[in-house]
């Protein structure tokens, strides 16, 4: 039987997961959708490509929804407070990273819609730059799944309960802080898309600048995985 504090943490994980990721995706999608609807008045034939760019922003919300459902399906098996903490950490991880990704992808997608309005030929390049900030949400999802695997939601518990809860929470916090890179990546990405529209040859070099920001996120993920690993959670 779950106590109230544990239940609050588990439900908190579910809420943060879809709530934050969904909010980020909605704000991002609003940016892309506004740009797309402006484009429709001038170039309705570009509906398909602008729809794709707008829909892609939603991916982080889907990741949030996924983790919410994964927690909800197994919440009946939760017995320990630390498992609740792990559920909260999983929700926080995908939620915050999804939020930042949503914002970053929104900025990049609205610039991409503008670029496609100017030249439909840049769609492939714009698509690649638009999804670059998604790396944050992907890593957030990965960390959530790793936390859920080590805390009895998706696999067996291998470490002492206290370590499972505390290590999961701090691993999530590290990734959450570094997730800001995804938003900043979107900002740089929008400049890169504009540059690519003007000069095709700029694409390769611009891509490097956008990806440079990702290094910090990767270090964050690495440290998060090490926190889980050194504490025997995974």
């Amino acid at each position: 039987m779950m106590d109230t504090a544990t239940l609050a943490l588990v439900i908190g994980g579910v809420t943060l997961s879809i709530g934050l990721a969904g909010t980020g995706a909605s704000i991002g999608q609003r940016m892309a959708a506004s740009a797309s609807s402006l484009l429709m008045s001038d170039k309705p034939e570009r509906f398909g490509v602008s729809l794709i760019l707008t829909v892609l922003v939603e991916t982080s919300a889907i990741y949030g929804l996924l983790v919410s459902i994964l927690i909800l399906v197994r919440m009946g098996d939760v017995t320990d407070f630390n498992q609740g903490l792990a559920a909260l950490a999983a929700g926080l991880s995908v939620g915050v990273s999804g939020f930042c990704t949503g914002l970053g992808e929104g900025v990049a997608a609205s610039a991409s819609v503008g670029a496609v309005a100017e030249r439909e030929g840049v769609f492939g390049r714009a698509l690649v730059i638009t999804v670059l900030p998604e790396t944050g949400a992907i890593y957030g999802l990965l960390l959530s799944v790793l936390i859920l695997s080590g805390s009895g939601f998706l696999g067996e518990i291998k470490a002492p309960m206290a370590q499972v809860g505390v290590a999961s929470m701090y691993a999530a916090i590290v990734l959450c802080i570094t997730s800001i890179c995804s938003y900043l990546q979107g900002r740089v990405g929008s400049s890169a898309i504009t540059a690519t529209t003007k000069n095709d040859e700029a694409f390769g070099r611009d891509l490097i600048f956008v990806v440079l920001l990702e290094s910090v996120l990767i270090y964050g993920l690495l440290v998060s995985i090490l926190i889980l690993n050194f504490n025997g959670v995974i």
Binding site: I62, Y63, L65, L66, I69, L70, V73, T135, I138, Y139, L141, L142, V145, E214, S215, I218, Y219, L221, L222
Partner: peptide, 30 residues
């Protein structure tokens, strides 16, 4: 040094996207 490290870790997305697709599918099946 940091570039090589981040390059290698970047391939984790192969696993993460597979999992995302698989778990989304499983959720629908559920």
């Amino acid at each position: 040094l940091t570039k090589i490290l981040s390059n290698i870790i970047s391939y984790i997305r192969l696993l993460a996207l597979n999992m995302a697709s698989a778990w989304m599918g499983r959720t629908f099946v559920l």
